[in-house]
Design a protein around this nucleic acid. Structure first.
Lengths: 357, 357
DNA sequence: CTGAAAGCGCTTACAG
DNA sequence: CTGAAAGCGCTTACAG
């Protein structure tokens, strides 16, 4: 049915076919009020006949200087993001708001563990950027700044001049760690996600950490230290830090830690995903949570586990974070200068902590 | 530090600054072998000094006729996609393959329940499209065809001429339904996701379904009918069909069904998410799975539930579906004509089915 | 290895 | 309500 002769359909060809100007055809698609309904229908009919899908999106984006898409940059490979329920919930919130404004969503991997300096962002056709949990030295941030695109950062880093969305991580971490302290735990290990872009499972202690470029990690570790300071020295608190917040990373980290520190009575995990992995590791070692080992998490993504075990953790509003970030970015794209937002968190007391006898 | 005078940095301005041609600057970024290392470094240094981030992605995409991004179209609002673990696992597989080729990922919502005829795709700057679980009459498919972009469909629909990825849904559905039949169940209800783009929770029977534009739904329903045909007539099998595969939809659907058909002894759910929601509804009604009601699912995304209950279901390889779809699309973008792929599935026997006494 | 120039498809101020 | 024309920033065949 379609007339696939010669060059592919374009706005110009439709115009020639009908003997009108290109502008009129453009208006038929973009500004219906700029021409008569009759002429418009004749143009759309001709477009249909010539199998023309409407103005080319790339040319339109180029000409207008905006694409109608925004990018979300994740610190790691996107496969990590999809394995992290907190990130998935965040993306759901972002998508929910963008959809109401008919804005598209591009997912961009950050530069953790790679030398590809912000290639993804360098090539992405986006009007603005949401940077989710990036290291402060991630080249993608510098790339976004150079492009001059509005950028909202979530959780980290706090960029001067740009809006930020997150929670009070240090206070939250202190709160959940106090649950362990109150139950009498003194020999405690910490299972962390990345401290910097090189984190890949190293085992250190709280006083020998590398400089943190991931601020949320630093803030939570500070909160834990606040809670434990009166009872044990940082040099006695082992910390294992893997690349991201997934079950696999938690399992491997906890396994390494419990093997080298069999005397620990509790594990503090920087996320529920890490905690689930840690619980699996404990099980693999023939021990039981909370009977042999207490565990606390962070995030509130995984409140109930198997066997009726529920995690003591911090609940934070991941979807709302996404919605808020998207709203701030849309405001910035409109030329406004939106304020940063600190969202609330909440302690959830589960069954994963047992008092020391 | 940056020289933010006059117009923003562009390739041309860098060229003027150095007294070389625009092409040479372009080559410095895109074809390092086309100029001397010394000159290249001088150009990159000047770019840095002038705060130039490299060739504008939109102009580059426009000029080259390709953007380095592909789109995944989901049938519903993206917030549904992120609530559906099967879709999330699929996206993880897609992302994994795209990342190895440095291709970006744009998420596009389909047209279920809306009149916005493929607006998302019409505006998206993408080189190719993966259509995931779309209705055969989704306008986005026609839009993709008109754009002439390579398209891979996953699960549905099977487009003439384009590669397809999925499993044998009818056989799989027959297999899992037979588990109920073998346990003696005869009064069975079906909790389904969308049959067409208008599905929104209606309660019908297996012989009064609307024409299915979502083929996977049709195939699974046919498989269930195959298994039940010898024992009960389609007119006696109630079917509730909501918009998507989420816990909320399953819960609402099962609640409506059990309220109007309190005599059912088993529920067949078209996905594990629907099954989880159905189990919640059963619990809300003060009954227990599997003691009072047997339930089977589909997908293998949610093998273990709370209270030690595990779902009898079909496991299908969601991530592998994503990887395969991405590979086929990349092949199509290279000009090849990749073959369709049918992936394997597997029956998982859990504890959610009890024999009828 | 380099320069000068064309042109990708569109939108929009300018002029009527 | 419409036409003729400029130009968005880049890449690439052409010519040297």
């Amino acid at each position: 049915m379609s007339e696939r002769d010669g060059p592919p359909a374009s706005l110009k060809r439709i115009a020639q076919e009908l003997g009108v100007s290109a502008k009129t055809v453009s208006n038929a698609f973009n500004r219906p009020d700029q021409l008569s309904a009759v002429l418009r229908e004749r143009i759309l009919e001709t477009a249909r006949r010539m199998d023309y899908a409407g103005p080319d999106p790339t040319a339109r984006a180029f000409r207008r200087g905006q694409s109608g898409m925004v990018g979300v940059i994740y610190a790691n490979a996107l496969s990590y993001a999809f394995a992290n329920p907190a990130a998935v919930a965040f993306l759901a919130g972002v998508a929910e708001v963008l959809e109401t404004e008919d804005i598209g969503l591009a997912l961009i991997a950050g530069s953790a563990g790679t030398a590809r300096s912000a290639e993804g962002l360098g090539r992405a056709v986006v009007d603005g950027v949401i940077a989710y949990s990036l290291a402060s030295d991630d080249p993608a941030l510098e790339a976004a700044r150079q492009r001059g695109r509005p950028t909202v950062t979530v959780d980290q880093p706090r960029l001067a001049g740009g809006p930020w969305v997150g929670i009070d991580d240090r206070t939250a971490a202190r709160t959940v760690a106090r649950e362990l302290v109150a139950a009498g735990h003194r020999r405690v290990g910490i299972v962390s996600f990345a401290i910097d872009r090189a984190s890949n499972g190293s085992l250190v202690t709280l006083d020998t950490l590398p400089p943190a470029t991931l601020e949320v990690t630093a803030r939570r570790l500070n909160g834990y230290r606040d809670a434990l300071a009166a009872y044990t020295s940082p040099g006695n608190i082992p910390v294992v830090h893997g690349p991201d917040s997934t079950v696999m990373v938690g399992r491997a980290g906890a396994m390494a830690m419990l093997t080298s520190h069999p005397d620990l009575t509790a594990l503090i995990c920087l996320s529920d995903q890490l905690a689930i992995g840690a619980i699996e590791a404990v099980t693999d070692l023939g021990r039981t949570v909370p009977h042999d080992l207490s565990v606390v998490g962070f995030d509130g993504t995984q409140l109930a586990g198997a066997d009726g075990l529920s995690l003591t953790t911090i609940r934070q509003p991941h979807e709302d974070k996404g919605r808020t970030a998207a709203r701030l970015l849309l405001a910035a794209l409109r030329g406004e200068a939106p304020e940063s937002v600190t969202l609330p968190h909440e302690l959830i007391v589960g069954t994963s902590v047992t008092p020391i006898g």
